[in-house]
Simulated assay, not measured.
Amino acid sequence: MDYYAFWQSVHEEIAAGPYGERRILTFHNSRQYAGALAQLKQLKARRTGLRKVKASPLIRAFIVPAAGAFKLMRKYASLIAVEEDSRIQIHSYSSSSVAQTPPSSIPWGVRAIRAPEAWSRSTGVHVKIGLIDTGVDFLHPDLKASLASGINLLHRGMLPIDDNGHGTHIAGTLAASGGLKGMMGVAPRAVIVPVKAFDHSGAAYVSDIVLGIDWCVQNRIDLINMSFGMKTRSKALHEVVVKAYRAGIPIIASSGNDGKRGGDYPARYPETIAVGAIDRKRRVASFSNRGGYIDVHGPGEKVSSCWLKESYKEMSGTSMATSHVTGAAALLLALRPGITPRELKLALRRSTVPLLLRGGQKRARLGGGALDAVRLLRIGTRAKAGARRAEPGAPE
């Protein structure tokens, strides 16, 4: 393969067309991808158009402006797969007005999953949570002690500062540590690693998510929270989710807010942990998607958490439910750092408590039960002890 000619063709089409939509180009052969990547690095300094090309080595992919993909689709059809770079949205359903103080130091959802009762065993210390979202408010007093620098995929070199609010809200439920003066999240000693993939409107491209997961795998993040979704399948997104799964990094994803059976991707991929939302009465929230693929339900209705400019806000959605589940998973990972994504999913499913049903609902059609952090730690660590006893020569 002539790698120079390949990139020259991309450069010419980028220069000729407007920069708008994008395409994901995935190489079938890892050796050819490596050759193309090496050539790209050499040419970027001299071909300014190629600086718009991004790479995901984890799935052997390049993200290029759509204008640069047309010739490639014809000329290199046997070597690469071309996928449209679709848009994807955060999962927020409704919100209330902003307040300067939290209604409670420990929000109802954190209490409902019994996180405070679990803190005597684990607070999630040192567990790194990759938060692929809109960024985080680095100045919020309840989050300062919980944040790592992370990465801004939209503006490399800048901090992943939140210009929407959704990411900050998720971060608060995950690991706020404001004590009595602020609010406490589910895993107050975990480390949030913000990965800004979404813009101020809460929209991103699939390729931004691919690059975010790729970055999390390369930087050995322990756990990934993904409170967003799309209606259609993406081969590239599924492939990078599988890569993270095989690398031992659990991905916890929200099911969506359409109030229907079925749900959004990536939650519907079997390699993720799919989350639905419940209300204060432990019933499936009216807006939550449902189905047998959902592994666990978390509090998602009128959840108060951190917001921009050192404030707080009440929001509803499966996004909020997902942050409770990810926080509880961090509590378990602190005790079992080697737990696999499959083991974590099984522990979550086995430790849930039954949902309360609305009229006419059948539990089997709703998916897993309600999250319980105390039961999760007990069942999750018991599985580890059982595995040790099963080893040859292990003490009884």
Rank of each mutant, 00 (worst) to 15 (best):
D279F: 11
S105M: 02
P102E: 06
K231T: 09
A187W: 00
T322S: 11
I249L: 03
A267E: 01
L50P: 03
L153P: 11
T322H: 03
E310L: 09
G35R: 12
I63P: 06
K384G: 03
L43D: 13
A347T: 05
I273T: 06
G20C: 05
D2R: 04
G262Y: 09
A247Q: 08
V193P: 11
N164A: 05
R156M: 14
D208E: 15
V64C: 03
F138T: 03
A364D: 05
K128V: 13
L376W: 10
Q39R: 15
P116H: 06
S323D: 01
Y93W: 13
H126E: 15
T326F: 01
N152V: 11
M230H: 12
G185T: 05
G109F: 04
L377N: 03
G182C: 12
D142V: 11
G256Y: 11
P270Q: 10
C216D: 05
G300A: 12
A247F: 02
H155F: 12
S254H: 02
H297W: 05
E117L: 13
G292W: 11
E396Y: 12
P102G: 10
L376Q: 04
G182H: 04
L37C: 01
H166L: 01
A285K: 06
M183C: 14
S351N: 07
Y269V: 04
G262A: 09
A145E: 08
M1W: 08
A34H: 06
E239R: 14
S95V: 11
R280K: 15
Q39S: 14
C216E: 04
S96T: 15
V241Q: 01
F62N: 06
G20E: 09
A329E: 01
T123R: 15
A244E: 03
T173W: 02
Y269L: 00
S30Y: 00
L377W: 07
D258T: 10
A16P: 06
I213F: 07
P107D: 10
Q39G: 08
D163I: 09
